[in-house]
């Protein structure tokens, strides 16, 4: 009986405490990150836009074996045009990754037997055109050189 009669008072105290807790936050500093000027440091294993690794001689490491295609969980995301060069080795004539379908799982990177494909730290991929999100081989090469300049990935060999 005693407890029930005290309930309104306890409620009022709880309400007041709640308001006090919220009010305290006025004096705290905002935690907001001023995004376009400052950016959060990314994790080492962050998976961003793809890039094809180019060696010192300007050649792709990719041999167009098609492993990435097979392990990709999305449907027809990676398309490779295979071709033989003079020495009888396969190389990709064209290599497209459709970002409209890619889910950035990183399977292609993990399963690549030659380490020929990596993921950079680029995540600002928004674009006005859908076709621009279909990365062809030149874009992928450029991504690699760009990210080496920005030092977001370590140069291989």
């Amino acid at each position: 009986m005693m407890k029930k009669s005290l309930k309104p008072f306890r409620d009022i105290i709880a309400l007041a405490l709640g308001h006090l807790t919220v009010f305290k936050h006025v004096f705290k500093r905002p935690v907001t990150l001023e995004y376009p000027e400052k950016k959060l440091p990314l994790n080492d294993n962050f998976r961003g836009e793809h890039a094809l690794v180019v060696d010192n001689e300007g050649k792709l490491l990719c041999t167009a074996c098609g492993t990435c295609q097979r392990v990709c969980p999305s449907f027809e995301t990676i398309e490779i045009e295979k071709e033989k060069n003079e020495s009888g080795k396969f190389y990709p004539k064209n290599y497209t990754i459709d970002l409209n379908k890619c889910i950035f799982c990183g399977n292609c990177v993990q399963y690549c037997p030659f380490g020929a494909i990596i993921m950079t730290k680029e995540y600002e991929l928004a674009d006005e055109k859908k076709s621009a999100l279909k990365l062809d081989i030149n874009t992928l090469k450029k991504n690699y050189s760009d990210s080496i300049i920005k030092k977001t990935v370590k140069s291989k060999r």
């Binding site: 959060l40 970002l99 890619c102 889910i103 995540y123 991929l125 928004a126 674009d127 006005e128 999100l133």
Partner: peptide
């Protein structure tokens, strides 16, 4: 108007 890929995109994106 704007296509924003990734799955899902970061809040910054």
């Amino acid at each position: 108007d704007i296509y924003l890929p990734m799955c899902p995109p970061k809040p910054e994106a």
